[in-house]
């Protein structure tokens, strides 16, 4: 049974220091929980770059292309409709909807992809079992370590966290599969 060992630090700097120590000790399954995004934490965890821009670009181009083709097909092919002598396939008037649908598709893709990446909604994550963890969204800077074996490993991590200056330490049981 694996556990999350959580430690709360008073400042972002202390948290970054603790994460460095943990990584140096060989712990790889680390995370941090902060009330606002902290660049130094991203660096300490060596998080890579997000792939979202590419996804958004593809979705946006797809949506725009779909909208353009739809307008062309409906007004020029399937049901040709002469409006004031303008060409059946008139690019200038097809661009607005193509643009709007491109933006809409990209935005939905971004939001949807974020939800999938976050695994949201997920309101019962084990970290919420620790009452003290409530400070993570207020003024606490938490480090979390996933430890596979119970017993010595847990105690060792707890000690590491305390030595690094953690104000509070908590241990919660991780869900299967996380």
């Amino acid at each position: 049974m694996s556990h999350w060992v959580l430690g709360e630090f008073g400042s972002d700097l202390a948290l970054v220091e603790a994460l460095r120590v943990l990584r140096a000790q060989g712990y790889q399954r680390l995370d941090a929980h902060t009330p606002f995004p902290v660049d130094a934490v991203f660096e300490a965890l060596s998080l890579g770059r997000s792939r979202l821009p590419l996804l958004a670009l593809v979705a946006g181009l797809g949506g725009a292309g779909f909208a353009y083709l739809t307008q062309w097909f409906t007004n020029a092919v399937d049901f040709p409709l002469d409006v004031g002598g303008r060409p059946l396939h008139s690019a200038p008037t097809s661009l607005p909807i193509a643009f709007e649908l491109g933006v809409l598709s990209a935005a939905l893709m971004i939001f949807g992809a974020l939800m999938v990446l976050f695994g949201f909604p997920h309101v019962t994550h084990p970290v919420f079992d620790a009452e003290a963890f409530r400070s993570a969204s207020v003024d606490g800077f938490w480090a979390s370590v996933l430890v596979e074996d119970a017993g010595d490993g847990l105690a060792h991590v707890e000690k590491l966290l305390r030595d690094a200056g953690a104000r509070r330490v908590a241990v919660v049981v991780a869900e299967a599969g996380t």
Partner: peptide, 28 residues
């Protein structure tokens, strides 16, 4: 809040997504 826990991994993606949405909202 859908289970937001301030995870650094989430913040990282969140910030990119938020900026991208801003980039889309501007021409929109």
């Amino acid at each position: 809040s859908l289970g937001w826990r301030g995870s650094a991994r989430h913040w990282r993606q969140w910030r990119t997504g938020y900026l991208l949405l801003a980039g889309l909202a501007t021409p929109l």
